[in-house]
Design a protein around this nucleic acid. Sequence first.
DNA 1: GTGAAAGCGCTAACAG
DNA 2: CTGTTAGCGCTTTCAC
Lengths: 328, 328
Amino acid sequence: MARTFVTAEEVAKRAGVSRSAVSRTFTPGASVSKTVRRKVLKAARELGYRVNRLAQVLNNDRSNLIGVVGANLSSPFISKQLDLLSIGLLRQGKQCLLLNAADARQDIAPLIELLFEFRAQAIVVLSGEPPASIVDECIANGVRLILINQRLDRTDTNMVLSDDSHGADLAALRLIESRCKKVAVVTSGSQTPAQLRRAKAFTQRMQAEGVDVVAWSGGPTSYESGVQAGRELLVDKAIDGAFCVTDLLALGFLDAARLEMNRRVPQDVSIVGFDDIPQAGWKSYGLTTVAQSFQALTEKVLSALDSDEPETRMQVVPVTLVERQTAR
Amino acid sequence: MARTFVTAEEVAKRAGVSRSAVSRTFTPGASVSKTVRRKVLKAARELGYRVNRLAQVLNNDRSNLIGVVGANLSSPFISKQLDLLSIGLLRQGKQCLLLNAADARQDIAPLIELLFEFRAQAIVVLSGEPPASIVDECIANGVRLILINQRLDRTDTNMVLSDDSHGADLAALRLIESRCKKVAVVTSGSQTPAQLRRAKAFTQRMQAEGVDVVAWSGGPTSYESGVQAGRELLVDKAIDGAFCVTDLLALGFLDAARLEMNRRVPQDVSIVGFDDIPQAGWKSYGLTTVAQSFQALTEKVLSALDSDEPETRMQVVPVTLVERQTAR
DNA sequence: GTGAAAGCGCTAACAG
DNA sequence: CTGTTAGCGCTTTCAC
């Protein structure tokens, strides 16, 4: 079993040229004669040579490594983001170093530290909130930091986020249109900043309109938590509407309403979600929800990564209400 | 602004010791005196020093980088695998270099080449089939290759896969138990080897039992393709059972059956899926399905990565039938 | 236990 | 255009 990779030196020897000639052949804008180039490529092919990017970086200091940290990678929402992001990165010729925070409450600071050690050029945070000290260090070391759906109160970081408050407002207006008298707002126990923003904006609007709102919160951000919420809340026969700050919660709530608590949706209770994950569109659900544009979010992230000097610090991506069948 | 990272040399200077002392301090099994160590650590902290792993690798040649290539990263099945895998890797102190093949038909060879350039220690293939030449090169360069749910006809590669044929057999037996007379077997148009194995084993068993089987195939591996299959197949009133080689297909089929084709499930038609993705357990579905153990699959992969000399080349993970409500 | 010095594989600045 | 010569940041003999 051959152990070590072929080096440029070996290629040079075989091709009968200098090391630098080899290097140049594999450097985009270098000047090499056709003949030398051909000889080198031939030798390289025969030997199975590949540049060692790690060694390359040592000189360049452009690692092309983009750190991606996030938790809950199998949730429909996050996985979609990751999918689009990783495709885009590859297209930009960048590599994606993925660090899974395992669960959202875990401190992501150590992961970011690790990314420093790999000299990541930029770090994209899909979920979790980096402590201020880390943000400072990113800046100090020239590592670009991009936060998704995270709103930090500082102007020196890139943030791209969906318009949560407006989305929540759309949801509120829709439920008002349904003539709801008493609505629930359900969040998960992990109360991320985004969830909080949505719940708050929703509640404000509803109360402004004189509608009763009861808040529920608990469990992880999952289908099951939604079921639980439905089970507990719908004991109250007066509740005729619900805003679940996440589709996963909404889908669980919907199932609990119909299949356990014996409610007709939307006749007895109107339900609105947030995210527009694929499952929201499945025929058994047809969830009315506030759609985040995964595509748009990802594009903003990618362009922030690509530009040399990021002019925009906070980019808010618009959301839209997707009307399906769960709101009267 | 693109400030450069602090180097070991600077730390050495500040601590008043040699470079080597610094290096030793950050090398697990090295011999440094308490005092020197303390001085170094102090200086390092003050300066915000981090070892440069990239430079480290140049000497070590243990990059700790594990390449992961796959397509369809947002499908419930793949994303779950990736989630578990990335958590496990981190726990093993390895880093995950993620390359998204964008779509399954894309050749993954170039991605693997790229991984070579990064001197990945091992490569895990979540989906897609690497050409033989690439497999050879992995071996030649001492890069361990691990294929998930891929059955290559060679003994020099690590493969971990679910027991597809047995799973398909379980599905067949279950439908026979339902007294089905004419069943459909639905695969997606991308006909992966795994799908083919399932369909084949199922068909064989059914025909052996004298049951009529009609095959359907089309579209990507998605919910929508399942819907399409249901729509087209259930025009035939005689069909009273279906085996969808993937849960995503099964869920779509189920919805089409109930909501479009006016069938009661399981009374009129029994449906069995494969995978056991989270959605299969959602109350609106309650899909009877063959469960792959994501956990077990991942564990095998992780242990194959961890062991120095992989003894087992092909590891088959058992599957189980999860009885819910879609089979009579 | 410690420093000096020699690489790891590559790129870049500098003569020719 | 090409080879020679320095490094990039780190680890690792090897003497002391």
